[in-house]
């Protein structure tokens, strides 16, 4: 599947540079403005969070952010509208939606995939749909050229890894620690070994996330991974300092990631 994700990771690889993946929550604050500003602040890929009432894989920061967004009237449809608005002016930065199954299932797998494709979405991470349950969703996404991105974790042994990487596309998201988002990363040596293992098994780029907050941490991981994901820290910065606060943090993080291998 050739889409913006493939192109973007090929570019990063050509420059021997790690990518920076910025996560933000749709609907929390002026999220359209933040979304539009992220590429200029250094985001190579954007993960756009779809708010859900019961985000059981997320820590306190993203839970609170989702509830604020829902309180402000955010919906899945409006999230797709924000992606579409972004896509009118930015034709190259990949957008990956991240969230939970129920709102998508409620819209209908096919209807969602069609709408997301039309909005210029490139990938989907659906946290609570493991490979055993994703056939219908994956079939729907395939039709519209959207990559279903899977998660590998420290509990994913070699046998399990084969299941995880089968039928996946775009990149593999390596969860650096057992725990929820924002919980703190695993040791860098363990992460680098895991990244190598997942790269080998999948033949795809590997992005590392969950618990990365500081530029130094991000840089250390960027030496080994194809990309580094930061979520909770950006969500907090947006809540506390608005678009300027969030983009300021993204600039510091992305610059640390982009220069890590020099």
């Amino acid at each position: 599947m050739t889409n913006r994700l493939t192109t973007r990771f090929a570019e990063l690889s050509a420059y021997n540079r790690a990518g920076f993946v910025a996560y933000m929550m749709a609907g929390d604050g002026d999220s359209q403005a933040l979304l539009n500003a992220l590429p200029a602040a250094g985001a190579d890929v954007i993960e756009l969070g779809m708010p859900f009432t019961d985000p059981m894989a997320d820590g306190a920061a993203i839970q609170a952010s989702a509830l604020r967004a829902l309180e402000a009237g955010m919906t899945l449809k409006k999230t797709l509208d924000q992606a579409a608005t972004f896509r009118k002016t930015d034709k190259t930065t990949p957008i990956v939606l991240m969230g939970y199954a129920n709102p998508i299932h409620h819209m209908g797998w096919d209807k969602f995939a069609k709408a997301a494709g039309k909005a210029g979405v490139d990938g989907l991470i659906c946290v609570d749909v493991p490979p055993e349950e994703d056939e219908e969703l994956r079939t729907a996404l395939d039709k519209h050229g959207i990559a279903l991105i899977r998660l590998a974790t420290p509990t994913t042994d070699d046998k399990r890894l084969a299941t995880v990487v089968a039928n996946t596309a775009g990149f593999v998201y390596y969860v650096s620690t057992t725990g929820v988002t924002g919980a703190g990363t695993g040791a860098v040596t363990e992460v680098s070994e895991a990244v190598a293992r997942v790269q080998k098994a999948s033949g795809l780029p590997v992005a590392v996330g969950f618990g990365v907050r500081e530029p130094e941490q991000a840089a250390a991981i960027a030496k080994h991974a194809d990309a580094v994901v930061v979520g909770s820290a950006i969500v907090d910065a947006m809540h506390e300092g608005g678009v300027a606060g969030a983009t300021g943090l993204v600039k510091r993080l992305s610059s640390a990631v982009h220069t890590a291998r020099r």
Binding site: A101, P130, R150, L151, T155, T156, D157
Partner: peptide, 20 residues
């Protein structure tokens, strides 16, 4: 075998929990 009762049931959990 998939833990389904007709359409219902299944194993909709985060990957970290799948091995468990």
């Amino acid at each position: 075998a998939r833990g389904r009762f007709g359409d219902y049931g299944g194993r909709f959990v985060a990957e970290t929990l799948m091995p468990n």
